[in-house]
């Protein structure tokens, strides 16, 4: 596996405001990377520096294993959060134009645009002007425009916002397919459920500072599994075990928070000795919980 994106302590500030501070991250090929953070935390600023729309005040950006050069952008597909299309242009013309700007021959661009429209189920609209299409349709066209030149690095800023569940799934599946073919995919979002499902690695930033990063496994393993859900029949006195911090008993199903450093196995042994256990699950914290715990209460998102 080779590294597609490498940021080395990049920082950027505007006037008094620090947009990004000392951010470092690596994205490997064939992985999906989630850039998370509350609104205004510096996600878009980081992405903009990654692809040379703005330059970092300090630090270095490398793409495809070499320092940033504009030529590398032909291998990148970027779907910004603030995205649009030329309203008066026909969909197919628009896609060919975008493809040409990224170095495709017009004929190649036209053929690929056709194939993608078919895959995204919008072939009927290919001859229409963009302004005649619904917002969801336009978003699919933007999605196609991002991928038309077969980029090795795909960057999508809030790609699923404003899409209905059917189309969101279609896009998700496409991204997963791309990942399987070895593309590196970075997307930013604050929808934790999507990240948890799709991403191999994450970086959580808050107020411009990276506060948490690593592979999904690694990040989660850093947080203790101290939440237990169990169902049982019989004596409930094991709930007085010293490992239990507090519990909620819903007639047969109990949710237990363990004390820090407590051993869940001790509790299970104690429970087995007194009651009939039908389920005992040590839950890992959800990304959402981690997010909230890390970023804390001062999130204005």
């Amino acid at each position: 596996m080779s590294t597609v994106v490498s940021l080395d302590r990049i920082s950027k500030s505007y006037e008094q405001k620090i947009a990004v501070s000392e951010l470092s991250l690596q994205i490997e090929e064939g992985t999906m990377f989630g850039l998370l953070g509350p609104n205004g935390s510096g996600k878009t600023s980081s992405i903009r520096m990654m692809i040379g729309i703005t330059m970092p005040d300090s630090g270095a950006v490398s793409l495809f294993g070499k320092p940033f050069v504009r030529e590398s952008l032909k291998r990148v597909g970027y779907l910004p959060e603030e995205r649009g299309l030329y309203k008066k242009m026909k969909v197919i013309d628009q896609l060919v134009f975008m493809g040409q700007l990224r170095g495709l021959e017009p004929a190649v661009a036209a053929r690929r645009a056709h194939d993608w429209c078919e895959r995204m189920q919008i072939l009927d609209s290919a001859g229409k002007k963009t302004e005649e299409l619904s917002k969801g349709m336009q978003q699919k066209i933007q999605f196609i425009a991002t991928l038309l030149h077969d980029p090795e690095l795909v960057i999508m800023d809030e790609p699923f916002s404003g899409l209905d569940p059917v189309n969101a799934t279609l896009l998700q599946d496409t991204l997963v397919d791309l990942k399987k073919t070895g593309k590196a995919i970075l997307f930013s979002t604050h929808r934790m459920d999507q990240v948890e499902k799709l991403c191999d690695a994450i970086c959580l930033i808050n107020k411009g500072h990276p506060v948490l990063q690593g592979s999904m496994r690694e990040v989660k393993s850093r947080y203790e599994r101290n939440h237990v859900v169990m169902t049982f029949e019989g004596d409930s006195s094991f709930l007085q075990h010293p490992a239990v911090k507090n519990y909620k008993d819903y007639s047969g199903q109990v949710e237990i928070d363990l004390k820090p450093g407590a051993n869940a196995q001790d509790l299970l042994r104690e429970a087995v000795s007194r009651a009939v256990i039908t389920k005992f699950e040590l839950m890992e914290p959800s990304l959402e919980e981690i997010f909230i715990r890390t970023v804390g209460e001062d999130v204005d998102a």
């Binding site: 729309i53 952008l73 990148v76 779907l79 649009g84 299309l85 030329y86 309203k87 700007l101 990224r102």
Partner: peptide
């Protein structure tokens, strides 16, 4: 202005200076 309101710029800037 029209390109600005249609939010086309950032899309274009990903490849064009």
């Amino acid at each position: 202005i029209q390109e600005k309101t249609s939010r086309i710029f950032e899309v274009m800037l990903a490849t064009v200076r």
